[in-house]
Simulated assay, not measured.
Amino acid sequence: MAITKNRGRQGVISAYVDILFGDTPTTATAYAAIDLPVGAQVVGGDLVVDTPWATTSTATFSVGDASSATRYLGATSIMSAARTALVPTGFRTTATQPTVNVTYAFTGSAATAGAARLRVDYIVNKRAAFAQG
């Protein structure tokens, strides 16, 4: 049996959101960050901390969804300026979990400064912008 080639092609779509320290005031809380269409598959992206979170102890972000808070990124320190790549898992969004969440956790005092950008690159199952061949 031969492989049936898929002639459909699509570009990778990027979505991003800027996050300020005041947007995530409560620890161990998942905040909805980016809505994706049903059937979307994350193929890349990153979390870039531009202004480190100013707190007295620890501060982390995890990136995931309703089923897995760390699907794309485990607890990552946001207390220094850095870029951390997301880890694609092959998961496709469903009607009950179409949102990429950021879970904020901290110990010590609440942050008084901090800014980051979350970028999610994705493709959508069965979408085609043009055909090849």
Rank of each mutant, 00 (worst) to 15 (best):
A30W: 00
A115G: 12
A54W: 06
A66M: 06
V120N: 01
T107M: 00
L20C: 09
G8S: 09
T70I: 14
I3T: 15
F21V: 11
F21R: 04
V87G: 00
T76W: 01
P52H: 02
T56K: 09
T24S: 03
A28C: 00
R71A: 13
Y31G: 08
V100A: 01
S77G: 14
P25M: 11
R83L: 04
V48C: 02
N125T: 15
L20M: 04
V124F: 15
F91R: 10
Q10K: 09
Q97Y: 11
T27W: 02
S14G: 13
L47E: 03
A105I: 14
A116H: 07
R83W: 00
V87N: 06
A54M: 12
T26R: 08
Q132R: 11
F106W: 04
P37H: 03
R83Q: 06
A69N: 10
V48F: 03
F21D: 10
T27K: 11
G45K: 00
I3C: 05
S80L: 12
V42A: 08
D121M: 01
S62H: 04
T56C: 10
A81H: 07
T99Y: 01
T26P: 01
T99F: 01
N6C: 09
S57L: 13
A15K: 15
V102A: 07
I19Q: 02
A33W: 01
A30L: 12
R92W: 04
S62P: 13
S80W: 08
T107L: 02
A110D: 06
T56L: 14
T29E: 03
G108V: 13
R119D: 03
A81P: 06
A2P: 13
A33Q: 05
S62A: 15
I13P: 00
T70N: 12
A129H: 11
D23K: 06
F106I: 08
A129N: 09
A81Y: 04
S68Q: 14
K5H: 11
S77P: 06
A75R: 03
R71G: 11
R9K: 14
M79V: 13
L47I: 13
D65M: 11
T60N: 11
A111G: 04
V49Y: 00
T107W: 00
A75N: 13
